[in-house]
Design a protein around this nucleic acid. Sequence first.
RNA 1: GGCGUGGUAGCCAAGAGGUUAGGCAGCGGUCUGCAAAAUCGCUCAGACCGGUUCGAUUCCGGUCCACGCCU
Length: 296
Amino acid sequence: MTGTELLVICGPTASGKSALALEAAERLHGEIVSVDSMQLYRGLEIGTAQPSAEDRARVPHHLVGFLPLDRRMDVYSYCEAAARAINEIASRGRLPVLAGGTGMYLRSLLYGMDDLPGDRQLRAELDAQYDSAEGEGALHARMAELDPAALERWKQCRRRLIRALEVRLLTGESILTLQGRVRPELRYRVRAFRLDLPVDLLKARIAVRAKKMLDSGWLPEAEKALAGGILDSPTAHQAIGYRQIGEFLAGRMTRPELEERIITSTWQYARRQRTWFNHQHPEAICLQNPEIGAIL
RNA sequence: GGCGUGGUAGCCAAGAGGUUAGGCAGCGGUCUGCAAAAUCGCUCAGACCGGUUCGAUUCCGGUCCACGCCU
């Protein structure tokens, strides 16, 4: 653990994290470090609800809107970048305020992750193999031989299986034995808050926000991102809404259907975030209201 | 008014006289290098009334409703 002090505000999408973090940073002499796998990207400003120019003028934001759409991102790279930003902010004597909803990024940043080797090239190859005709079976057979325990554990889960094989190939050992069993200590001195609004309220906020985004420029933004190949990008293609907007623009969906589908997938995302934050962040104090008073 | 077809869970949608349909949505969980991802589990039926049968969501009759055609 470093002595660096951190304020953390996490929670599901549309729960009011950004506004709260903004106000807190303003009052506490802080700068915001985004913990969001999609706000990273340049060109997805509206669709990923990035902070406005006005917000950014009020408080410096880091790790927002800088990454080209075709760039791959992963937890490890994110953590490196975020740790760097945190150090810079702290060295300026300001308070790093982490704000965002990408649970795995946040947990990895706060608690660290086992420093196992990684090889994107190898991983990409294994992934490509998986797609070929007998790929899945071949990969399973290979794992059955090299690391049956990991296969058993993740046979349903392509990515983790591939990652397990990657590590096995790189180290000669099973990822299961290399990963620490116990959760490590926090790496920073954190004051963490997790927003957990009542379900009905959160649902309503999601619906309102989705409609507002669609009414205020998301469509042209998405059209441009689609033209730029977002759907074929390694990571950014996962952003909610862009594929659906493509369908809508192609006339395969009505506007009400589009809204509904976006709201639905956003809610599903929020649900996953809720279960993550409810279970993975014992250090965080639960806030039922995005109110500044609670964190000052 | 007549004839026909159909009424299956919040929605879509099958088959079968007795054995889980399935998909979507919903709910709960998992999560160590693509996480706005991936994945596991659970809940929710047979329009209504009667009959046949050991047993009906499935067969028969009626009622209601929807759709189509005819008058």
